[in-house]
Design a protein around this nucleic acid. Structure first.
Length: 568
RNA sequence: UGGGCGAUCGUCUAAUGGUAGGACAGUGCCCUUUGGAGGCACUUGUCUAGGUUCGAAUCCUAGUCGCCCAGCCA
């Protein structure tokens, strides 16, 4: 599944309390000889994001480690928020991440069974129909510090409850008029146990069951039993469900069904990143981004389009582990694992993002050469390619300074550098426009340095990339940066929203980047390292006449660091 | 202020009563036909106070701080 590099393997075997728990249960045969069974249970009401990737890696990864299986189960108990579009995208994203489920399930598959069990609880005096309004139920629930009060309908007879519940199911009552509640303990210090609602009336069309039902089970009433039906042994979920565990167990115990167990772990938080479905939806709806798959979004479809790889995401998830502490992982951690993966696998190419013409005055007019360069110095198996060279090339504007600052190793008047894989060149003069901007640099080359090294053993401080002007293909390059300016996007002044932390420079479009000709055959989603610049992938907006590349991540830039230090 | 959960380098995470380790970030050096990558080195940590123990990050007590819970959402 993952490649065999040492780092990946190290990271995969980091212990965590979930693995320990499963190992213990297997050792003690808590579930007899049953194999480990897990599930990933998203509600199809939005797109999956990097936080879900952590859960997916845990659910699928741990089951796999123990030779068990994982179901993909849609927790589709609220027809008002759920759509087929999300069901489809979630499946695509899970597969993209590299996981295949054992069974594809839906909580809605169990509506019939859940209903039968509700009848059973009513007959046992463990559930009742309540006619209180939502407001009244809230008032009766009490507060964090005060116990709740019994509903006046709490002691209806079994017969009356049965009659009313059947009629609820038959559609005799309007939305909100009644609910079915579990009869537990209105004085419990755990609010979830104060007679939680099991069913509400919702005359809504469900994306799968259509209009077959007008009562829908609540999460708490559906989740544990769904786990139980699927014989899930380890039901892993995030920490905020810890308070629900007693209720999860209560339903299973009352019903006497397969004892699935819930184990909670901490949710992923990332610096400079928002992982709230509600806020992500707002970004999409208010068009602060182009859609769920905008390359700046933390959705799996977004970071996929950005150029991130499933391998790197999985390695990242393994590296951050799982615990029960509430922390925030530095986004640089994710970026590190992504660079690490791409460095090993991405084909290299030369691309000049902000072109400056370099004219080699002593290069024979009209001459053209092909230089052979490695597709990936990290991976000899990637082979070589030929790059055309002429007496006029584009170099990066940043790679020339008329007045070089201290420690600047690149091209400047009188300085010699290497054009990668080609020749040593020495800058001689500049041509400026009427405004004094440098529009052209003239240089001379050393014909003896063909291939990039001089027979006299002379060294140059710097190697820069280039693209022959005669062969360059123009492209659009989209430079993405963090979507938010603050490590905690939710950290705002009184009265402001997270939107005020939006980074106004999160997208910069470069319209006239110059690429080496081999890039013409790039495929959508194909990833490259543009040497000395960063990692890029071809966007699906590309057309035959116009390539569009997304910058996944810049390369680490130690010159930028030096410059920043000197400047600040 | 009721209940629950938690607290280890700046960050994430190991150590399961017996040497506080790794990764990210940072710093310095080496190397380099990518100021990339790589190599080496360095810096920094057990929330506090008591207790148990030959020995405590780990167990106990109290405190402090943080997160979660009062949807007919999940």
């Amino acid at each position: 599944m993952t490649n065999g590099n040492p780092e990946t393997q190290d990271v995969r075997t980091i212990s965590n309390f979930l693995r320990d728990q499963i190992a213990e249960d297997v050792r003690t045969k808590k579930y007899g000889d049953a194999e480990v069974q897990t599930r990933f249970p998203p509600e199809p009401n939005g797109y999956l994001h990097i936080g879900h990737a952590k859960a997916i890696c845990l659910d699928f990864g741990l089951a796999d480690e123990f030779g068990g299986k994982t179901n993909l189960r849609f927790d589709d108990t609220n027809p008002e928020k759920e759509e087929q579009e999300y069901v489809d995208s979630i499946q695509a994203d899970v597969r993209w991440l590299g996981f295949e489920w054992d069974r594809l399930c839906y909580a809605s598959d169990y509506f019939g069974q859940l209903y039968e069990w509700a009848l059973q609880l009513i007959k046992a005096g463990k559930a009742y129909v309540d006619d209180l309004t939502a407001d009244e139920i809230r008032q009766h629930r009490g507060t964090l510090t005060e116990p709740g009060k019994d509903s006046p309908y709490r002691n209806r007879s079994v017969e009356e409850n049965l009659d009313l519940f059947v009629r609820m199911k038959n559609g005799e009552f309007p939305d909100g008029s009644r609910v079915l509640r579990a009869r537990i303990d209105m004085a419990s210090p755990n609010l979830n146990m104060r007679d939680p609602v099991m069913y509400r009336i919702l005359h809504a069309t469900h994306h799968r069951t259509g209009d077959a039902w007008c009562i829908y089970p609540m999460y708490d009433y559906a989740h544990g039993q769904s786990d139980s039906i699927e014989r899930v042994t380890h039901s892993m979920c995030t920490l905020e469900f810890t308070d629900h565990q007693p209720l999860y167990r209560w339903y299973i115990e009352q019903l006497g069904i397969f004892p699935s167990q819930q184990i909670e772990f901490d949710r992923l938080n990332l610096t400079y990143t928002l992982l709230s479905k509600r806020k992500l939806l707002q970004l999409v709806q208010e068009k602060h981004v182009s859609g769920w798959d905008d390359p700046r979004m933390p959705t799996l479809s977004g970071i996929r389009r950005r150029g991130f790889t499933p391998e790197a995401i999985r390695t990242f998830c393994a590296a951050i582990g799982a615990s029960r502490t509430n922390g925030t992982t530095d986004i640089e951690m994710l970026e590190h694992f992504q660079r690490d993966d791409l460095n090993r696998r991405a084909r290299r190419a030369m691309a000049v993002l902000r072109p400056l013409k370099l004219v080699i005055d002593n290069y024979p007019a009209g001459q053209e050469e092909l230089f052979e360069v490695a597709n990936n110095p990290e991976d000899p198996a990637a082979g070589m390619r030929q790059v055309p060279f002429t007496g006029e090339v584009y170099i990066e504007q940043d790679d020339f300074r008329e007045v070089p600052p201290p420690k600047y190793y690149r091209l400047s008047p009188g300085k010699e550098v290497r054009l990668r894989g080609a020749y040593f060149v020495t800058a001689q003069s500049v041509v400026k426009d009427a405004d004094g901007n440098i529009v052209e640099v003239h240089c001379t080359y050393d014909p003896a340095s063909r291939g990039g090294s001089s027979p006299d053993g002379r060294k140059v401080k710097s190697t820069i990339h280039w693209v022959s002007t005669a062969h360059a293909i123009s492209a659009e390059v989209r430079i993405y940066d963090k979507l938010f300016t603050k490590a905690d996007p939710g950290d705002v002044e009184e009265g402001e929203s997270f939107l005020s932390n939006l980074n106004p420079d999160s997208l910069e479009i470069l319209n006239d980047a110059k690429l080496e000709p081999s890039l013409a055959s790039a495929k959508v989603e194909e990833r490259f390292q543009f040497e000395r610049v960063g990692y890029f992938c071809l966007d699906r907006d590309s057309t035959a006449g116009k390539l569009v590349f997304n910058r996944t991540l810049p390369l680490k830039d130690s010159w930028a660091k030096i410059e920043k230090k000197a400047g600040g």
